[in-house]
Amino acid sequence: MILFDNVSKLYPTQNQAALESLTLEIEKGEFVFLVGPSGSGKSTFLRLTLREDKPTAGRIRVAGKDLHRLSNWKVPHLRRRIGTVFQDFRLLPNKTVFENIAFALQVIGKPRRQINRDVPAVLELVGLDGKEDRLPDQLSGGEQQRVAVARAFVNRPLILLADEPTGNLDPATSVGIMKLLDRINRTGTTVVMATHDQSIVDQMRKRVIELEHGKLVRDQSRGVYGYTR
């Protein structure tokens, strides 16, 4: 589903590579934790997967597409097959919960009928039914992140990328989000989650990929967070 082949990324302003000769493969339906200290290249990995940026060297394949050869105008179609969740939720403050999720479908030209069917369904999935008319600032952080997950998942993507989705949440709330991501993973969606959160990684016992200074230092199935230290 995601294939990095000897990928390096050097940002123009930086003299150390954000990713260095990274080779790894993530299969369809996997749940993968991407761990490593701040600045180790986790977000860069996700950005490259989304084709928000291009690698300096190496090849990337995502959902059967060679990103190197993917023309700019086809990038939106790639992104429709990938859901994304961030630490800061990225909701539109002046739109309700329903509208925030509907927005993601509207802007890719989905018909109203489908929106009115899919948005309530995904709200129920994330446990927010009954709150569709609230504005983001009338929700708790955990609830806001559920809206963001709902928006990422409403179009049934092949892949869900999450960049420290629990970074702003307390441990109890984080567990709820992790259960949600696990449920989404069980529908067959590949989930890649970058995180610092040791207890979550230790509890879930999923595949762990650890980066340090942009290099792969560990790739372990059913791993824990701090294995090498």
Partner: peptide, 8 residues
């Protein structure tokens, strides 16, 4: 957000 969700 539009870019992220794949709007053209």
């Amino acid at each position: 957000i539009m870019r992220l969700v794949g709007a053209s």
